[in-house]
Computed example of a mutant assay.
Amino acid sequence: MSSAPVAVGGVGGSGTRVIAHILEYCGFFIGSDLPETMDTVWYAALFGRRNVLLDDNDSLQDLVQLFFRQMAEPAPLTPSELDRLNALKDYPRHQHTPDKISEWLDGFINHCTTGTPAERWGWKVPYTHVLIDRLMAWHPTLKYVHISRNGLDMAYSANQNQLGKWGPIFLNREVDIGPRDSLKYWCAVQRRVASAKTRHPDRIFLLSFDRLVEDPVTWISQLIDFLGVHLDAEDKDTLASWINPPRSVDRHKAHDISVLDPEDVAYAQRCNDCILT
């Protein structure tokens, strides 16, 4: 029987990659086709499409449960399951080519046949938060780690993939790929995840990357406790040594933030002033 799985997400560029490395260090299986970003591409292949939100609820739940089951205890797929996965190769994607999606799905299908059970497992895909309410409902022990960075800095990030892909849905309109809508999207995500946290207070860990950089030992210890993993002080010090301040900290100070919505700026500043736990 596997332990509680752990998912990691956040707005792109928030620092989720280092948390994926920590999961691996702690013995969590997060996939075997990991790119440099440490994204679990199998999750991306199954759920990284806008029309996932249009899936029939029962059909989506079946696909989610298939993913859960195969990550924990891989087993050969039934013909209908194989047909369902292969059909995903034809779905339009915002960012990746059909060949790339086909490659990822083939990797997952191969894992279902050749993989071994994982006592600890999870995944890291930044936009996991898009489905977080349903994922939490469909796996009663699933834990979620949401990484956030200063919203004002994120407004000026070069990584605006989520804004382009999910922004029109979260903001209910077409978006401009720029700082103003980037911050609006960041605020929308923060509010959604904060709301989910109130419904699942013990299963969602909100981690400020800025706080992690300032005090890695303290926040690594809290994260490890949340994961339910035992590490000695030396291991925690090793993980803490991986946390380095990026050069992009406070990058918003080099910009005229008057182009941003003042209400969004105020909300981001309130978030940044809070210690998220």
Rank of each mutant, 00 (worst) to 15 (best):
L85Q: 08
K124A: 06
Q160D: 10
P168D: 03
L206H: 12
R191G: 03
E214W: 03
I19Y: 04
Q190R: 08
H255K: 13
H129E: 12
M1S: 15
V18Q: 09
P92I: 01
V41G: 02
A266I: 09
V193I: 13
P76F: 11
E234Q: 15
R69Y: 06
N51H: 07
P201T: 07
F170L: 14
L142V: 10
K253Q: 15
V125F: 10
G27N: 07
I243G: 13
P179Q: 08
P35Q: 09
E214G: 04
W104D: 02
Q190I: 07
P246N: 11
D261I: 07
P262C: 12
H255S: 12
D210S: 00
Y25S: 09
A268G: 00
S208D: 06
P92K: 11
A118V: 04
A75H: 12
S102Y: 00
V229M: 04
I132D: 09
L227S: 00
W138D: 02
C187Y: 01
L276D: 06
L152Q: 11
Q269I: 11
R134A: 10
G228R: 01
L260T: 08
N161L: 14
S32N: 15
E263D: 14
F29W: 10
D83N: 11
Y185Q: 04
H200P: 05
W104E: 07
I220E: 03
D202F: 11
G15M: 06
T113P: 02
S258F: 05
A266Y: 00
S248Y: 15
L231A: 03
A268H: 01
F209R: 08
R49V: 07
S248I: 06
S80N: 05
D90T: 15
G167E: 01
G31M: 05
D90N: 15
Y91G: 09
Q222L: 04
C274G: 14
D62F: 05
V11P: 00
A87K: 14
W123N: 02
R199S: 15
C271F: 12
L152K: 05
R134G: 02
L46W: 01
W166H: 01
R69E: 13
E214F: 06
P92V: 01
L163K: 05
S3Q: 12
S241R: 05
R199Q: 15
D215W: 08
T238E: 13
R49S: 08
N150R: 06
A137L: 14
H129C: 05
T37A: 12
A196Y: 03
S148L: 15
Y185G: 04
G167Q: 01
I257C: 05
L206S: 09
N150F: 04
R120Q: 03
L53Y: 11
I19C: 07
S59Y: 07
P98Y: 06
S2K: 07
R50G: 01
W219Q: 15
M136Q: 12
Q61V: 11
P5E: 02
G178Y: 03
L142Q: 09
R247Q: 13
H96E: 10
Q65K: 14
S59H: 15
